[in-house]
Design a protein around this nucleic acid. Structure first.
Lengths: 213, 213
DNA sequence: AATCATGGATAGTGACGCTATCCAAGAAGT
DNA sequence: ACTTCTTGGATAGCGTCACTATCCATGATT
């Protein structure tokens, strides 16, 4: 398949595909002649994944490149590749602040993880994301202590068990990593949308109305 | 408190505060003279909320204005204000597509909600977000059927009960709405970070290593 | 009286994700 | 062989977004 067909089958303009090629999000096609290259199903898959990461997962293009590089790095052990790939994904973490709220947030975050029997890794981007989110809540004066967080943590653990089990169903290591990245990123909007729907449901149930849109 | 102090106490530059005033995210201060205005604690609270929405919740400035306008609209019934405010929040939904995947996604989304006893409101932005996320998953060839989604839905329902209960603790209607918006948006990164941490934990447990960063 | 800060207006900036235009080399059609 | 695409590669431009910098006249502060 040549560029035009790749474009047609993916719904992505050739200009954009060229841009992704330039940015290293897509491997160059197999050169057929000095003016033509051939793309395969693998390219199509990859292109769709890139689109999903960038558009649904709001992953910046430069970040997507890092993530995909880690997925493909056959020289590192599986678990490390996974860590690098998922660690590069955006978490909404802001830079480190030194603040009463930040300190309290760090303590709460650690406490939740210890309580759930998790190993606390402060360098983990997700850990930093958690701290910065909790700190923001505290700064605004909303409650966000161990008791508030525990239900979320417990549910997160349940989801994780479910998801990791799903990933094990894939065969090839690279396919597994790809699935891990895709499922991590793409189930986020699923989870958040369901939460919003559940909130609307619960709000209209409690506050009496018939409909909360 | 004058502009400079508002800036200092919030950590937001005066230029940015002026920008927010222009954009209608902040009400103008009480005019003291033709060249000075006075801001109060309420302005500070609001400013912090705006910052949190924009930076942590990645809510576009223009959207934040709509959300806050709904929160403050004292002419509408509470539940409607809530619906408008939360409905304006971004969901990662993309425009409507007509696709085999989109059709299947719509069916799955409806099925989950019916199964959980929720009223299906297709116009709800969260509903559309769900459909578009599920469709993306399906297009990439990942499983996303009723069985996959049910655990997420069940957990979402649990969270929602917990959160709506929290909101009821606030007194004034406007304060409740503010809390609803803040908690909806700011618990998202908390939930997602916890999920990532749980995944790392579970991955390193299953795939044998000692650390998934 | 001299200096400074203020709010308002307006234009500019930098990052980001494309998008449009050129171009020479080669494929395809006749 | 000759014309007419089409291709991949390079480069520059565009539109949006969230600020940010500069100016200004008025009026507060010392």
């Amino acid at each position: 398949m040549r560029l035009a067909e790749l474009s047609e089958r993916s719904g992505v303009s050739t200009a954009t595909i060229k841009y992704y090629l330039r940015e290293g999000l897509l491997r160059p096609g197999q050169r057929i002649s000095s003016t033509q290259a051939e793309y395969d199903e693998e390219h199509l898959r990859r292109l769709r994944l890139v689109r999903a990461l960038v558009h649904v997962g709001r992953v910046p293009v430069a970040t997507a490149r890092e993530v995909l590089a880690a997925v493909e790095d056959e020289n590192a052990p599986q678990l490390e590749r996974l860590g690098t790939a998922v660690g590069a994904l955006p978490t909404g973490a802001t830079g480190p602040v030194d603040d009463a709220a930040a300190d309290a947030a760090r303590e709460t975050a650690d406490a939740v993880q210890r309580r759930l029997g998790w190993r606390v890794v402060p360098e983990n981007p997700a850990h930093q994301g958690l701290v910065s989110a909790v700190a923001t809540l505290l700064r605004l004066g909303y409650p966000c202590d161990l008791d508030q967080l525990l239900p979320y943590g417990t549910l997160a653990a349940e989801l994780a068990r479910h998801e990791v089990a799903l990933i094990e169903d894939f065969d090839a290591p690279t396919t597994q990593l790809e699935a891990a990245v895709a499922l991590t990123v793409l189930y986020e909007p699923v989870l958040l949308s369901l939460r919003r729907l559940a909130q609307a449901q619960e709000a209209s149930r409690r506050f009496g109305g018939r409909d909360a849109e």
